[in-house]
Design a protein around this nucleic acid. Structure first.
Lengths: 180, 180
DNA sequence: TAGACATATTTCTCTTAGGAACATCCAGAG
DNA sequence: CTCTGGATGTTCCTAAGAGAAATATGTCTA
């Protein structure tokens, strides 16, 4: 949350949710509304953000918008610089299922893998598009860098699926030969 | 849990924890003890596992061991076959930090990335070792397949870090030129 | 003029995470 | 020969996270 606010914009809880959904979707989860609104109150209490109410002309409901304070900036900066490097969290449901390959037919496995391949390619394409738009703005240099990483990451995820499909074929061949 | 038990072994909660920590570490998170023991009771109540107490000769404390039932097998099998293909969950703290590149020095970024690169290479090596031992046993054919995937995955994670380091260098070069 | 959709926030409930506590034994260090 | 750390084995407690639903309010469209 502080990271998102560190770009300097004045954002509502709703904005933060949309922003994080949008910006982090390639490499990080996005907090739920309940987490965001709760956290904003906590952050304000400790002085890392400050807020004000905004009456909206355009007709929409009034909202509370938040900006990061100097203390908040110091806190995120400290985190970004000094936090220990932690391993990424991965929960790969597709691999979990294939790990249990004795429970499903080879064709079903291929289908699951194929669908995952499609997902990876779709994500790669989306990242590719985002790289272009992020490069247009100077302020997005680092996000653009990470988007480029994401594009490559999903390309690799797609290739990994292909490699595994090939491994599956090979397994079947060996099986067929040993049981003629 | 049912997946782990579907290999047919009679396991205690403690065994399940060690097993899942060990087997899934490359591609899935492992449940906590509290989840495991709670879940085992729930699974027994719905008839997916059954348990018995075992008095241990070797001196260790008595334990309760669980086996999967036919209904349990049917349930995991159904899950493995029919569950929707869901996108993997990724929380890449390193990328989140680099996304906030405006908050830290270029050298600190390189350090974080370098450490992540090392982590990826270590994981790759571990996966490589595990592939060999899994291939020794016929029953581990599918786990071996996923371990092979893991080995490639971490190799790619390492290469992605290298590519990003190169991107960072390039960014610095351009920066230096535009501000002579 | 209803219905879908977008903004904006709160509430509730369930799951997951993670550590601490408890219990028991073994092996190795001092 | 005792102390301590580590492995086995299980339970309890608390906090964080996920996600749906409820509550407002207004716009645009079929």
């Amino acid at each position: 949350m502080l990271g998102l606010l560190s770009f300097g914009e004045e954002l509502s809880g709703y904005d933060l949710k949309k922003w994080s959904d949008w910006s982090l979707r390639f490499f990080y989860w996005s907090p739920s509304f309940s987490q965001i609104y709760g956290e904003l109150k906590r952050l304000e209490k400790v002085g890392y953000v400050s807020s004000r109410m905004v009456a909206q002309e355009t007709g929409n409901r009034d909202k509370r918008v938040y900006v990061i304070t100097d203390e908040g900036m110091a806190a995120v900066r400290h985190w970004a610089r000094e936090a220990p490097v932690e391993p990424p969290v991965l929960k790969h449901g597709v691999m979990l299922r294939l790990w249990l390959g004795h429970l499903l037919e080879a064709d079903r496995m291929r289908e699951v893998l194929g669908r995952h391949r499609e997902y990876a390619e779709t994500m790669r394409e989306r990242a590719e598009v985002d790289v272009e738009s992020a490069r247009a703005e100077e302020a997005w240099a680092y996000p653009a860098l990470v988007l480029k990483w994401s594009e490559r990451f999903y390309a690799s995820e797609r290739d990994l699926a292909d490699a595994m499909l090939a491994d599956l074929d090979e397994m079947d061949d060996l099986d067929a030969k040993s049981r003629p």
